[in-house]
Design a protein around this nucleic acid. Sequence first.
DNA 1: CTCTGGATTAGCT
DNA 2: GCTAATCCAGAGC
Length: 191
Amino acid sequence: MCNNQSFNTLITTHATVDVAKELLGYELIFYGPNGPVGGIITETEAYTEDDPASHAFNGKITKRNAPMFLAAGHLYIYFIYGIHHCLNIVTEKEGVGAAVLIRALQPTIGIDIIKKNRPNVKQKDWLNGPSKLMRGLTIPVNLNGTNALTSDCPLQLVFRRKPTSIQTLPRIGISKGMDRLWRFYYSDKTV
DNA sequence: CTCTGGATTAGCT
DNA sequence: GCTAATCCAGAGC
């Protein structure tokens, strides 16, 4: 898994907010039942333990957020608004609750499969939301708590390119912690 | 045990 | 741009 080396290094040596920024330009690949699907990460958000908007605020471990306290590289998938799922990559060492929310991808692998997964949706809307990418790639919820650093994980992250331009913005859909500009957007014209 | 609100999306105006 | 859909986790009693 030499491809994984740089992701492994990134996530085990950087703080959460830096990981969120650095993940832009990585390719997220899911080896699904119909073949590999994936895309370049174009938008992320950081959530840490001292962040009032985080599920892991104050380091409180619950049944739902427990995966956030696993070692960096694990996956945290949670259910929200009764219908949607969101994918996070756990950061920090074991025992510290922090993660990066993957908000958007630009489709690169398995275009035909993604198209089939997103009927009646315009291409630009296939994966441009945290729950849209779960559906578009058909990532199963049972990956929650698994380790994406192991080669047998069906979800892998591979470094592809470094964005020349990153936008830093307030996070979306939260009511606390608005002062933290922890949303990062890959703003290159050509991806 | 009950109640409330949410790291969202799709569809309509 | 505005709002309904829809259900679980967490907090309060």
